[in-house]
Computed example of a mutant assay.
Amino acid sequence: MTHSVSAVRAVDLRAEPVDKVLDRVEQSLQTRLDPGTAVRKRRSVGARTDRGTWVRVERRPFDKIPDQGWNGTESAARLEGVPRPAWRGCVVWRDADEPVMWRADETDLLPGTPVGTAVLAEEPALSEEWWRAFGASLDALARNTTRRVATPDTVTITQGLVTESIRGVFPEVIDTAVARWIPAHADLNWANMSAPTFSLFDWEDWGNAPRGLDAATLWAASLAVPALADRARRERRHDFESRDGKLMTLFVCAKILGPDAYPEDPRIEPARHRAQQVIAELQAG
Rank of each mutant, 00 (worst) to 15 (best):
V225F: 02
D19N: 13
F170M: 03
G207K: 02
A118C: 06
D108H: 06
G212T: 08
L141F: 04
A232D: 05
A15R: 10
T158S: 13
L200V: 12
D244E: 09
A215D: 05
E129V: 13
A275W: 12
I174G: 13
P124T: 02
N144T: 00
D230S: 15
V225G: 02
G69M: 03
D34I: 15
P114G: 06
T217S: 14
W190Q: 09
D139P: 02
G69L: 02
V39M: 04
D230T: 14
R40Q: 06
A121S: 12
A150S: 09
R32F: 09
Q27E: 14
T2C: 11
T146P: 01
R236V: 08
R274Y: 15
V252H: 05
M1V: 07
G112W: 00
E98T: 12
G258A: 02
R48G: 12
T31C: 11
R43Y: 09
V225Y: 01
S137I: 03
K64Y: 09
P210V: 08
R148S: 10
I256V: 13
A221F: 01
A140L: 06
Q283L: 13
D265R: 01
I157M: 06
R78Q: 13
M1D: 05
A140T: 05
T37F: 08
R243T: 12
E16G: 05
G116Y: 03
R167Y: 04
